[in-house]
Design a protein around this nucleic acid. Sequence first.
DNA 1: CGCCTTTGACCCGCGC
DNA 2: GCGCGGGTCAAAGGCG
Length: 178
Amino acid sequence: MDAYDPMSNESYGYRSVDSPDNNYDVPHQQNSEFFDNFFVLDEWMNEDQASIVPEYQDHTLAYASTVFDDGSPSIGSSSSPLQGNSNVGGTGMRQAQKGRKEKVAFRTKSQVEVLDDGFKWRKYGKKMVKNSPNPRNYYRCSAEGCSVKKRVERDVEDARYVITTYEGVHNHQRPSNF
DNA sequence: CGCCTTTGACCCGCGC
DNA sequence: GCGCGGGTCAAAGGCG
């Protein structure tokens, strides 16, 4: 596997992703432990909560997961590329219910670690995880009373991709200047 | 001065 | 009960 080289590409900096002609594939890795208990999201959640911007869409595969408070996962995994509003692979995001934790993961081809999603985040932790040379970073939403968290790490198997996992639902709007 | 990272320590659940 | 792995705390320092 090629080493990740942050200097090897022209698209670098604020909100940048790989150029659109640089292939469309965001392969799902069926055997990736990371996505156990996730299923592929077949539609975007409403924009305010999705925490991901449209310009990333072509470089992103989205996963969703719902975990009950007792810890039992509710959904198995499936696989399909994310394609706008196409209706493949799943039933889409369900409404939040009590006793559930909503999680959404995005696997995005990007050279920047932290994708600008319009929210303000405060970092509160960093860990090296087993079986990965890459650190995992923990962020909490800065808005008062908002308990949304996200984790950011590079894909173990292909460092060109960033995996961002959101947990929870914002109790406020995305800042309007976004 | 008011936020923000950084960082090691701490906590907790789980398997042995 | 103990160690390990993952997640979080909080003190200290940085920066606009």
